[in-house]
C-alpha cells in the first residue's frame, strides 16, 4: 500500500466517512501491521481531542437532564416533583398567613441541595433580592425557586411558576436564566417581566431594557424555538396552539405599575373571583350555586377594564349568563 493510500484511509476513518470497501482495506492493513493500528488509533485519539466535543450549551444539558429524570421517575419531571413539594409548603404558607405574616413566605429545605422557595399568596406581591443582587418582584400567587448553593457557580438559574418582574444585575460570565414550565429565558443583565402560570394557556414576556433570548420548550422540555426580543417588545406564547408572537408594547403597558392595576387569578373558582371583584369594585355579585364551585380560571385582567367587562371575559365560553337587574348588582346564572 502506498503512503498516500494509507493517508487517505486514515483521514477518512478519523472523519467517519470511510466506506465499506475502504474499511476492509484499512482493516487488512491494521491486522497485518500492529504498529499501523497503534498509529491509526493514536491519530484518531488526537483528532478527537482536538475536536473538543465536550462543549455543551446549558439548555442542551438541561434538556438531557430533564429527559433522564423523566425516565427514572416514570414520566415525571423534576419540576413536577418540585411542584409537589411546594404544594406541601403552600399549606404551611396559608397557616403563616393566618398568623398574620403577610405576602410571601420563604422556606428553606435542609441539606446541601436546599432550594429556597418563595411563594406569594393570591393578591399579594413581594420583593426578593437574590444572592447576586438581582431584584425580583414576585407577583400574586407565584412561586420562585432557586438553589443558593448552586446559584452563582456557572449560571444563575431560577424557576418560576407565575409572574415576576426582574431587574437583573449584569454579569456576562454568569447568564441569568428563568425557567418556567414552558420557556427558558436567558439574559445577561436586563429588566423584564415574565408571566407563565402553569395552568394558564398564555404566557407573556415583556422586555423593558437589554436583550433577552428566549427558548421555547416543548412538553418534553426540549427547545423547539429560540428567538430574541428587544426592549419595548412583548412575546406572547399560546400554549394550546403553540403559536408565538412578538409585538410592540403600548405606551400604557410600558408605563404601568406592575403591582397595582392588575388582578391575577390562578385556577380559581368563580365564587372566589366574584368575591375578589366584590372587594375591588364594591359591588354585589351573586353566583348561581351550580356554577360557583367550578374552578380553573386562570389569568390576569386589568381592573381598569371595569367589572362588567371582566365578567364578560370570564364568560368566554358562555358557561353562564350575566344578568344586571340594577346598578351595582350582578347575577351570574347557569346556562341550561
Amino acid at each position: 500500500m502506498t503512503e498516500e493510500r494509507k493517508q487517505s484511509l486514515f483521514l477518512e476513518y478519523i472523519d467517519g466517512t470511510l466506506d465499506a470497501e475502504g474499511m476492509e482495506e484499512l482493516h487488512a492493513l491494521t491486522e497485518e501491521d500492529p504498529s499501523a493500528k497503534e498509529e491509526l488509533f493514536s491519530l484518531k485519539e488526537l483528532a478527537d481531542a482536538a475536536m473538543k466535543g465536550d462543549e455543551m450549551s446549558p439548555f442542551e444539558k438541561d434538556r438531557r437532564a430533564a429527559d433522564l429524570i423523566r425516565t427514572v421517575t416514570g414520566g415525571r419531571t423534576l419540576a413536577g416533583m418540585r411542584a409537589r413539594e411546594i404544594f406541601r409548603y403552600a399549606a404551611v404558607a396559608v397557616v403563616a398567613a393566618f398568623l398574620g405574616i403577610s405576602g410571601a413566605v420563604i422556606l428553606r429545605r435542609p441539606g446541601n441541595d436546599s432550594m429556597t422557595v418563595v411563594e406569594t399568596l393570591p393578591g399579594a406581591a413581594t420583593s426578593v433580592t437574590l444572592p447576586d443582587g438581582t431584584s425580583v418582584t414576585l407577583k400574586s400567587a407565584s412561586v420562585l425557586q432557586y438553589a443558593p448553593s448552586a446559584f452563582d457557580r456557572r449560571e444563575r438559574t431560577v424557576m418560576l411558576d407565575g409572574e415576576a418582574f426582574f431587574k437583573v444585575v449584569a454579569d456576562p460570565e454568569h447568564p441569568f436564566i428563568v425557567r418556567t414550565p414552558h420557556q427558558a429565558v436567558k439574559v445577561l443583565g436586563t429588566t423584564f417581566n415574565v408571566q407563565d402560570f402553569k395552568e394558564d394557556s398564555l404566557s407573556t414576556i415583556i422586555l423593558m431594557e437589554g436583550k433577552v433570548s428566549l427558548d421555547l420548550l416543548d412538553t418534553e422540555g426540549a427547545s423547539v424555538r429560540s428567538l430574541e426580543i428587544h426592549p419595548g417588545e412583548k412575546c406572547i406564547y399560546d400554549k394550546t396552539t403553540g403559536r408565538m408572537k412578538v409585538e410592540k408594547i403600548s405606551r400604557g403597558e410600558a408605563a404601568q405599575d406592575w403591582n397595582s392595576s392588575i388582578c391575577y387569578f390562578r385556577g380559581e373558582s368563580l365564587d372566589r373571583i366574584a368575591s375578589r371583584l366584590e372587594q375591588y369594585f364594591k359591588v354585589t355579585i351573586e353566583v348561581d350555586p351550580g356554577l360557583g364551585k367550578e374552578g380553573g380560571y386562570s389569568g390576569a385582567v386589568s381592573l381598569g377594564e371595569g367589572v362588567e367587562r371582566i365578567l364578560n371575559l370570564l364568560n368566554y365560553d358562555n358557561s353562564f349568563k350575566l344578568v344586571m337587574p340594577e346598578d351595582g348588582y350582578y347575577l351570574l346564572k347557569a346556562t341550561e
Binding site: 444539558k61 429524570i69 427514572v72 423534576l78 416533583m81 441541595d113
Partner: peptide
C-alpha cells in the same frame, strides 16, 4: 434526584 441530576450534568459533556 437532585444529586442524580447534578452528577449527570457534571459528567455528561465528557
Amino acid at each position: 434526584l437532585y444529586r442524580l441530576e447534578s452528577a449527570y450534568k457534571e459528567n455528561l459533556p465528557g
